[in-house]
Amino acid sequence: MATTTMAAALGSGLRRAMEDDPRVVLLGEDIGRLGGVFRVTDGLQRDFGADRVMDTPLAEAGIMGVAVGLAYRGFRPVVEIQFDGFVYPALDQMVTQVGRLHYRTGGTVRMPVTIRIPYGGGIGAVEHHSESPEAYFAHTPGLRVVSCATPQDAHTMIRQAIACDDPVVFFEPKRRYWVKGSVEDEVLDDALPLDRARVVVEGTDVTLVAYGPLVVTARDAALAAADDGLSIEVIDLRSLSPLDLDTVETSVRKTGRLVVTHEAQRSGGLGAEIAASITERCFSLLHAAPVRVTGFDVPYPPAKLEEHFLPDLDRLLDAVDQVMGRQHSLTGWSA
């Protein structure tokens, strides 16, 4: 057991995957000598060679299409998209090729491509460096979409993603890259499967569903609410597609209240999907309508405004008050 940052845990996960399977190759911009702009691939080109850790031309559609061709040839490509906002040029190949070839070919051609995307805000960045585009991919059949929230999950989930025969879009919460945690070299078969959510705090009053960068915030909210006498169950969703609705449903059957949070814009987002699905499944058990705490329906704002865009501890607690039927921002406070 070692204590490392999430970035290092991802790096060691990639290293393990490359050791385990010689068909694993890495492609991306600046991932070789530089080790990636976040240093996640630090040292991998030195140790595995430029043939397996390839710096590519600066062209995301090209990277993604070439990864498709490599997969056709029987490789397991791992693509690094430098920042969330730069995945859009690759969107075409992801949606029309990566996510469909297995279906198109009646199961003949597999696309075991892993697409790593550092994502999310909170780092004071310029435009296109703070986006949360996960809903586009979750809406696309044939792609698995996951996000890690801890160094341990980062390490294990990246290995699971690479070993998976389906394409996996792997969202890395970049503002948590430097958060430290203990990391064990888990046996993949013993680890929680990639498509399963995890209850990270048990509770009885409210189910709070989060993923990626906001899992830490949700845990903090549970702690703060506990001081207030409220018991919050926090679920780290981990898999954004397919959704582990069974785990969420089990929790909501117990609590009768649901709050979902993500940084991504609200409309048509994952929160909507989760709220709708859980309402369908548990309508008669709900004590309150589900509440979403999300980014607003605006393009990602400039850095000096991002604190207003991003869900934070207080906004989560406000939503908890709302589902508890307490006074909250919409009712106003009377003495």
Binding site: V25, V68, G69, Y72, R73, F75, Q97
Partner: peptide, 17 residues
Amino acid sequence: GAQTLHATGYALGCAKD
């Protein structure tokens, strides 16, 4: 046009192999 990239990736794979 999408397939031209797939061919290129496949070709890279041939070279690797």
